[in-house]
């Protein structure tokens, strides 16, 4: 009996030890963080993680509900020809808006900072020239659009009607999400057409190549471009009627 009591006591001690270790581990983590940044920054980091998680959860739910919605659309349009046509048109519109994964032939271009900061020993003297900027991506995307492509993505961020590209410190933000180099630009369309548009007078690829930040330009028979994982909001526009 006495020994059992000792056992329980030891157990309790172990429990306390466990908690103590946990708290210590946490404190160490906190201490390291405080060393690298202020307290408010750490709180912000936690907040960012929490909101990202919130978003992921809601977005997963949206996906689920959308599947249900499509099922119910199918059900109500059964045996109704004109409604079926409308449903097909809606599907096409959503595809054009960027809400489906796509595949097809096209090209892939990889851009990366030129770490040598020179090409064949020659330098412009400005190290910023050898870094990939938001403007390089904006120009290249516009040049690709010249060819009349079906879809474009940068590091799997789909380019849709609301997509903006902007530098944010040493990363680039596309669709509000951070992407960093190497930048892989994928486009689905005629590979020859795209190459033509990229090499026409005034196109930016040549300049980028001369600065050594184009790592690869590759035609491909199967380019995969993911869907836009966001929402296109219409709040301020009204239709005329």
């Amino acid at each position: 009996m006495n020994k059992t009591k000792i056992g329980i006591l030891l157990g309790a001690v172990c429990m306390i030890l466990t908690f103590a270790t946990c708290i210590q581990l946490k404190t160490i983590a906190e201490a390291n963080k405080t060393a690298s940044g202020s307290f408010s920054e750490n709180r912000l980091r936690d907040e960012v993680l929490r909101w990202k998680e919130n978003y992921d959860i809601v977005y997963a739910k949206v996906q689920e509900e959308e599947k249900k919605l499509e099922k119910i659309r199918k059900k109500v349009t059964e045996n109704d020809e004109s409604a079926t046509t409308t449903r097909e048109e809606l599907k096409t519109a959503n595809r054009l808006l960027g809400f489906t994964d796509l595949t097809g032939k096209g090209i892939e271009i990889t851009l990366e900072d030129n770490k040598l900061q020179s090409v064949d020993g020659l330098t412009t003297g400005n190290i910023m020239d050898y870094v990939v900027h938001d403007d390089d991506l904006i120009q290249l995307i516009n040049d690709i659009k010249n060819a009349g492509v079906d879809a474009i993505a940068i590091n799997n961020q789909r380019i849709v009607s609301t997509t903006g590209i902007v530098c944010d410190g040493n990363v680039v933000r596309i669709n509000g999400e951070k992407v960093s180099q190497p930048f892989v630009i994928k486009a689905i369309g005629s590979p020859e057409g795209i190459m033509g548009a990229l090499t026409t007078l005034g196109a930016s690829l040549d300049t980028l190549q001369r600065l050594g930040i184009v790592k690869e330009v590759k035609k491909s028979n199967s380019v995969n471009i993911p869907k836009y994982e966001g929402v296109i909001v219409i709040e301020h526009i009204r239709t005329l009627s």
Binding site: L44, W51, G176, G230, V231
Partner: peptide, 19 residues
């Protein structure tokens, strides 16, 4: 940095609200 974090935070908040 703090300013970047604030931008990041508001961006995720907006995305959350939209979703």
């Amino acid at each position: 940095r703090e300013t970047e974090l604030r931008a990041e935070l508001s961006s995720w908040k907006t995305k959350y609200e939209e979703a």
